[in-house]
């Protein structure tokens, strides 16, 4: 998926242990904000949001007792830029439990950028049911929002310029953990 896999001069802004600490803190914040509610449902946005949701679920299980379910929410069919690019492959939507009706859904993604992904995710949720509330957890908030969307839980705020690219690497997908900040290879077209 990543065109600029070889983004030049990328520097690491978060190491593996930083990511682990950020996730642990987010997990505690979720417990605090939701007052230990047992109807929390973590839904990761593919690809890396799903892995982050699973990690958060494991930590919530450690903190709050019973294991939290984590699922995935594919937003491809709801994107607003579908017609700007070649058709893309779909990812899995997996909702643990009966449905999302009446539950507290926490969306999990790796990078919050334009907010368009989250807009699409909210539309996708609307077709799946009616959650009690929807919250958003992201590992990195890099700014440059194009929609009135904000995150409830942020691992790290990383101020960036539009010429930069933030790349999250996770062991499950990339073999190691880390967040890299490099230069974009193409013209800045914020889309996420």
């Amino acid at each position: 998926m990543d065109d600029n896999a070889g983004a030049s001069h990328a520097r690491t802004v978060l190491e593996g242990p930083d990511i682990a600490r950020a996730l642990t803190r987010i997990a505690h914040e979720i417990v605090e904000r939701t007052k230990g509610a047992d109807d929390v449902l973590l839904l990761g946005i593919p690809t890396r949001g799903v892995h982050l949701a699973r990690r958060l679920a494991a930590r919530l299980g450690d903190i709050a007792g019973p294991a939290m379910p984590a699922g995935s929410l594919d937003i491809t069919m709801y994107r607003d830029d579908l017609r700007l690019r070649p058709a893309r492959a779909l990812a899995r939507t997996e909702i643990p439990g009966e449905s999302i009706d009446g539950r507290l859904v926490v969306l999990v993604d790796d990078v919050l950028f334009s907010g368009r992904t989250i807009r699409a995710a909210l539309d996708a949720l609307g077709d799946l049911g009616r959650p009690r509330a929807v919250q958003l957890a992201v590992l990195v908030d890099r700014g440059h929002r194009e929609l009135p969307i904000r995150a409830d839980y942020v691992g790290k705020n990383i101020p960036t310029s539009l010429r930069e690219a933030v790349r999250v690497k996770l062991a499950e997908e990339d073999g190691r953990d880390g967040v890299l900040l490099g230069l974009r290879e193409s013209a800045p077209t914020p889309d996420r």
Partner: peptide
């Protein structure tokens, strides 16, 4: 979707788009 079929256009004819993740 592009990729598998032999491309009719030369590679790079289309501006490369970047996805953050």
């Amino acid at each position: 979707p592009a990729g598998q079929t032999p491309a009719a256009e030369p590679r790079g004819a289309r501006p490369r788009t970047e996805e953050n993740h």
